[in-house]
């Protein structure tokens, strides 16, 4: 019994310490983000990595998601109300409020988040982080800040891009598969969604983009020696970011619901 209580107590203490360390990392990163020197070339390098190299994967996946969404919606609506005239509107609503931002963020997590955790973790175990400190470089300023800025901008850009591509593909599918004209799709869409939904999707993208590098760098900095350590840091970061994205999405959707 005592050992059970001990282990629960130990887990609570470990969690509190982890949360404290993460908050400290976040606050330090925020302070360094808004104070010079600004590493502009590093930010652009990371922007290229986040946006340019993620965009094809995001576009491919959201196209598939859009097609599935509209076909499935039509199938079920036809069964229940024998009519799928509302499908374009509902699909647009679902895409703009959830699908575009969340799917693109989860894809960026698997690509960028895992990449950052593995890179920083490897730097940690091969003493590169210590070498940075020895050369007078602050690792948070050098590694975390450029990735954070790039990821927030990338999150917004990819979220908007994913939503637009998703809507376009949904329109094509509804036109060629379901028989709705492009005009009727747009009319139905405008009845259900507005520009505000796109702004909210961009805000979601920024929030998801904020979490991805912070969590990845946090686990990277805590990486234990060996290939297993790097693997664990990467897995932990992807799992934690994915849970965070779903949780943040719920919180933001709940907050945004007061503005509709």
């Amino acid at each position: 019994m005592i050992s059970v209580i001990d282990s629960i107590g130990l887990s609570v203490i470990k969690t509190v310490i982890m949360v404290r360390d993460f908050v400290v990392l976040t606050l330090r990163t925020l302070v360094y983000t808004f104070t010079p020197p600004f590493r502009v070339s590093d930010i652009f390098k990371q922007l290229y990595f986040v946006i340019n190299e993620s965009a094809p994967i995001v576009i491919f996946c959201v196209c598939s998601a859009a097609a599935v969404t509209i076909i499935e919606s039509s199938f079920h609506m036809k069964i229940i109300i024998q009519n799928d005239a509302l499908v374009p509107g509902f699909a647009a609503l679902l895409i703009l409020r959830e699908l575009g931002a969340v799917v693109s963020a989860l894809l960026v997590t698997s690509r960028v988040g895992a990449g950052i955790a593995a890179e920083v973790g490897t730097m940690q175990i091969t003493e590169q982080i210590d070498a940075l400190k020895m050369l007078g470089i602050n690792p948070i300023r050098f590694l975390v800040v450029p990735r954070l800025i790039a990821s927030v901008i990338g999150g917004v850009v990819l979220s908007i891009l994913a939503n637009l591509v998703c809507l376009y593909v949904a329109m094509l599918v509804s036109q060629y598969k379901l028989g709705h004209s492009a005009g009727s799709f747009i009319v139905a869409m405008r009845a259900f969604v507005s520009m505000q939904d796109l702004y909210f999707a961009a805000i979601k993208g920024a929030c998801f983009g904020f979490v991805i590098p912070l969590v990845s760098c946090y686990f990277g900095f805590r990486c234990k020696a060996g290939a297993e350590g790097v693997g664990l840091a990467t897995t932990n970061s992807v799992v934690t970011i994915s849970i965070s994205i779903i949780t943040i999405d719920f919180i933001l959707s709940w907050i945004f619901s007061y503005f509709y």
């Binding site: 091969t126 003493e127 400190k133 020895m134 602050n138």
Partner: peptide
């Protein structure tokens, strides 16, 4: 950071930036 400017350290690993 000021103290480390006075010190140079060669690590066990080469610790070069990849």
């Amino acid at each position: 950071f000021d103290i480390r400017k006075k010190c140079g350290m060669v690590f066990q690993h080469p610790a070069l930036f990849d």
